[in-house]
């Protein structure tokens, strides 16, 4: 009843969706930025069409783990039996040799967090982690994944506690439409371990100097994230989010609501 008063414009279904999408500990995960009540206020004021847009963005960030029994294959030619781990659970599938890992995740395992952007390895929306390394699932044949360990956006959060990179993307508004966001976040999570391992990039000052871990400048973050395209142009905010997770101190949030609150 209280919710109904808060959201007079919402249908029951929308209200339910909103509640499902909001983690219980929302206000705790963002210490210096977005508060739950402000978030709700924003949504209430934006009306239903904008609301849908925001849902899309938020939905990408918090895509839930839903993998139940795999959907059955249809019209398989040159079938390959393959068993691999996805977000901790073993999946056994009979796949057409042509099926990409991306299609297997989306169409067979109903893990639709990973997105099909260009389907040609040019946009990065399909980025997932395979054996801990970021790869393009649209150019990975599912048949090659025997015994591999796959982590998708759905596998990053620990229950209702978001992965720090997910929380940082919310705090810094690292997305607008949200379509590239699962790929951006998976890519950024892998980037953290690459930096920790001391891996170099093209803009690394001197590749001959090897060391344990790399401190990433904004230029380094941009170069290392160049495989993930964002057509909304949220790049500055994405860089802020990554810098916050990579560094040891909070990065100031640069946006605020029209009434001056954050």
């Amino acid at each position: 009843m209280e919710d109904q008063l808060k959201f007079p414009d919402l249908t029951d279904a929308e209200r339910k969706a909103l509640e499902e999408l909001m983690p219980d500990d929302m206000s705790e995960i963002i210490t210096s930025g977005l508060k739950r009540r402000h978030f709700l206020k924003l949504i209430t004021f934006t009306g239903t069409s904008l609301l849908a847009t925001h849902f899309l963005g938020i939905e990408q960030l918090m895509a839930r783990t839903t993998a139940g029994a795999p959907l059955p294959p249809t019209g398989v030619e040159n079938g390959v039996n393959v068993a691999f781990k996805v977000n901790g659970s073993t999946q056994k599938l009979l796949v057409d040799s042509r099926m990409t890992l991306l299609d297997a995740l989306r169409e067979r395992l109903t893990l639709t967090g990973s997105k099909k952007g260009c389907d040609h390895g040019q946009c990065g929306a399909c980025t997932v982690l395979v054996d801990g390394r970021r790869v393009l699932s649209c150019l990975t044949l599912a048949a090659t994944c025997e015994d591999k360990v796959v982590t998708t956006i759905e596998g990053l959060a620990d229950g209702h506690t978001l992965h720090p990179m997910q929380a940082a993307f919310i705090k810094h508004d690292g997305f607008q439409c949200g379509y590239c966001t699962p790929g951006q976040i998976c890519s950024a999570v892998a980037l953290m371990s690459e930096a920790k391992n001391g891996e170099a990039s093209y803009v690394t000052r001197n590749v001959r100097q090897t060391g344990k871990s790399v401190k990433l400048s904004d230029e380094e973050i941009r170069e290392r994230m160049s495989g993930n395209i964002c057509r909304c142009g949220a790049y500055p905010n994405i860089v802020d989010a990554i810098r916050e997770v990579h560094g040891d101190k909070a990065v100031a949030q640069v946006w605020q609501f029209a009434d001056g609150t954050i």
Binding site: G121, G124, T127, R133, R134, V135, L136, L139, T140, S187, A190, L191, E194, A200, S201, Y202, T204, N206, V207, R208, T210, R224, S226, G227, N228
Partner: peptide, 22 residues
Amino acid sequence: RKNYPLLSMAILAGASAQIRNM
């Protein structure tokens, strides 16, 4: 990286991190 930094630089100039991993 130590002995053939030219090769490291050239590889890292190509494609994206995801593609170089594959």
